[in-house]
């Protein structure tokens, strides 16, 4: 325990009660506290009306993404000690409409996830559950990294394209499409390519690379998108030069 405090400057917005503002709170400083601990301290003992999402506080549920001093961060993994002596400015993730305080509207993101058909597609008639599909560690390794996305949406907050183009499918969803495209068990690549090669798909990406910078799980969505672009380009020229060949 210590007597040191740190100041939080928290973005407040109530749609039924005027415009946005910042509110300051002084909370106890602990060496091992994360920003989420400080927010919970505020909610529990200072101001119960502060709203934000959180659950696992171990960096895997993806609920608690916010802007911490301007950087998209998981607040459960952003230590106060890295922001001493403060103040720490906490805002909702940028590029998303704000519902209330630190809570953003995720519906658009959820629709984009749905859009890329993020599930195994098989041509088998019936599902035979007597044995697993075989997949070697090498085959697993091809897509494993892209399967680590926790849908925390930090990459959407970091992406300047999302800020300008509403319909851009965005880093996490495109990485997820690539995850299934690279899975040796999947047969739905063509279907997914039809979605991600559209205008609001991969070609909107200008390879800013910020999505990969902020990703707490090192998924590297920027890499996934560039790989998809490369495949898309190769695919295009193949069809141009060899119209008789089957699309890969």
């Amino acid at each position: 325990m210590s007597d040191t405090t740190i100041r939080l400057e928290v973005f407040r917005y109530r749609p039924d009660n005027g415009g946005p503002s910042f509110q300051s709170y002084d909370v106890p400083y602990h060496d091992d506290w994360v920003v989420l601990d400080a927010l919970n301290y505020v909610k529990n003992y200072i101001d119960g009306s502060l709203s934000f999402r959180w659950s696992c506080r171990m960096g895997v549920c993806g609920s608690c993404g916010m802007q911490v001093n301007g950087e998209p961060s998981l607040t459960c993994a952003a230590f106060l000690r890295d922001h001493m002596p403060g103040p720490v400015r906490v805002e909702p993730l940028t590029n998303f409409p704000v519902e209330r305080d630190l809570v953003v509207d995720m519906n658009g993101f959820m629709e984009k996830l749905d859009h890329v058909k993020p599930y195994l597609v098989r041509e088998d008639e019936a599902d035979d559950l007597s044995a697993e599909y075989l997949q070697t560690p090498v085959q697993l390794d091809r897509y494993k990294q892209f399967s680590m996305c926790i849908n925390c949406m930090l990459c959407y907050a970091a992406c300047p394209v999302i800020g300008r183009v509403d319909d851009f499918i965005g880093p996490a969803a495109l990485a997820l499409a690539q995850r299934y495209n690279l899975d040796s068990r999947d047969q739905g690549k063509q279907m997914r390519q039809d979605v991600i090669f559209q205008n609001e798909g991969i070609w909107e990406c200008t390879f800013v690379g910020e999505c990969s910078e902020v990703c707490p799980k090192h998924v590297d969505p920027a890499g996934a998108i560039q790989q998809a672009k490369l495949e898309g380009a190769v695919d295009y020229y193949k069809r141009l030069l060899m119209p008789w060949a089957r699309r890969s």
Binding site: P20, T94, P97, V98, R164
Partner: peptide
């Protein structure tokens, strides 16, 4: 229920 739009316009690169 009015979600607040906080996106930056063409000045995004100054963020």
């Amino acid at each position: 229920n009015r979600p607040l739009d906080r996106r930056l316009g063409w000045t995004w690169w100054t963020r």
